[in-house]
Design a protein around this nucleic acid. Sequence first.
DNA 1: CTGAAAGCGCTAACAG
DNA 2: CTGTTAGCGCTTTCAG
Lengths: 329, 329
Amino acid sequence: MNPTIRDVSKLSGVSTATVSRTFFYPERVKKATREKVLEAARVLNYSPNAIARAMALQRTDKIAFLICKAHSSILDEFYAGICEGIMKESNAYDYQLLISTEEDWIAATNSAKRKQIEGVILGGNAKAERVLEFQNQNIHVVMVNNRIAGMNLPYVLSDERDGTRQAVQHLVERGHQKIAMIAGRFSPYICSERYNAFLDAMNEHGLKVESRYIRMSDPNIESAVEVATALLRQKDPPTAIFGANDVIAVGAIKAALRLGLRIPRDVAIVGYDDSSICCTTEPELTSVHIDRMRMGQICVQKLQALMRGEEIPEQVTVLPTWLNVRGSS
Amino acid sequence: MNPTIRDVSKLSGVSTATVSRTFFYPERVKKATREKVLEAARVLNYSPNAIARAMALQRTDKIAFLICKAHSSILDEFYAGICEGIMKESNAYDYQLLISTEEDWIAATNSAKRKQIEGVILGGNAKAERVLEFQNQNIHVVMVNNRIAGMNLPYVLSDERDGTRQAVQHLVERGHQKIAMIAGRFSPYICSERYNAFLDAMNEHGLKVESRYIRMSDPNIESAVEVATALLRQKDPPTAIFGANDVIAVGAIKAALRLGLRIPRDVAIVGYDDSSICCTTEPELTSVHIDRMRMGQICVQKLQALMRGEEIPEQVTVLPTWLNVRGSS
DNA sequence: CTGAAAGCGCTAACAG
DNA sequence: CTGTTAGCGCTTTCAG
């Protein structure tokens, strides 16, 4: 059995109230008393029980990060990055962080679990229904890397439109006109942002978007290789490919290499996310960088503001992105 | 304010004890009563408060996964895989999972936090000191992917020696004799296992290990490229390279490609971990597969056994590994 | 500056 | 099958 505040109280000869104060408001306790208490605590190897404290204070300082994403690796590099930011910042606020997939969360038999978190960060493709469910339970919600209409909560996003614009502009500056895009079938929000931004950017540069230059791929390399191969094999093929993410772009690189094309001379390729795989290929992949870590940190900050009761109406934080140019373009 | 068990008790006209039973031992309550209670709960939007429950029960069902690893991406693909397994299994047992880096954990000002976890999974390069610190607080410990002498706890490992043996055997079967190894500077336990296993395997095949074929690299691509370049540039270079992990092996692939060597004809390359980057290169990387997800799941199972009081003395679980052969060899 | 005492929401005997 | 009641360990008025 772990020692309780009562044990310390007895051993040090002061009341439990004073023990409690010693730990959380040391300045309200005379130095001599405080030292007596601390010594007793040391002897007993006591440290305050957070559960009891949470119970008395009616707060848990516990938040959750829920990844809403179907199958495939849940904690892929992208979410792992966000996750790290969340972990880091949670710690700064002394929050406890629960991480789970949406799927597991729902499957949890003990729905009580939900009741002890005070805020949740929803990553990926969360539905409005889920948001409302939390808000109904007085649990604050922040959404990252996704946006759904009509919800009253803070969003943390990266600048998909500008990132895409930079990618296209870069290719145009390199002299490309026949620019293809391989769009993806992953997060609907992200995919449509990037796709629409691509169309807009092409427009801005006065370039025509031929439908035969627009393809769709599953977010895995095999699918991307297949799609890119078909794209490059047609006559009058594109001279540049913009991939909706790095995995897809790497698939395009592989397809090009297998077709004997030289990169970037015959075909230039640009990806999105600037993940570690950009440096595994030869040549290495130019890609739009997202500051995932910072996104995660900001999520926690927003959540904290919400939990402190600082009213934040629907508020969108958009983080800047930039292009990391490498050998593939 | 959230509704309490008392509110439900009042509205449904039964005692709080019955409400409690309805939620956690429904079979001990008459159907009619149960339905009355559930209806009241629904109306009030009540669900049991886990904190109060934890308090009364004197248990939290809360465990932690602590990643002990310096800088660089904490949640790299390897740990993310283990992490997913842990998440999945935690859920099956209805445990709450706290994930943190060792660094953050220590920095946490509120050491009380520690008191409410009942078990911890230590990943990476944890020190004995840390283990003892937990055990002193009656917190159960399981260690994954690492082993330290003289500790009394379960270990979950993958078969590094056999994995390495398979890699070497594969290269020998492909006719290689001059096999080099680029060892790594990451987890000391893993690195020395793989290194020693390599020496043993070479021995078994009666092959000499020339010291000029043994190199050391930091666990990042740039370093590996550099090291591999030097390795391949010497006269009478190796015809095969075994990388201590995939990142290093990919560096070797890049070095070989840049030197104009053909893979696998001029030089064969094998990695370790079978991570997603194996399929990003051209040719793709042969690698030793580790079932990370399962490692994570087993960790939770071991921890659960420990927490249930089933005495498990120092016990080592070793998971099988296998070679995924791809184009690089 | 310190102590006494009333909870925080729930569970587990024990009685009925 | 259901109700009563005494805690679980801590915090926080309110007095002193």
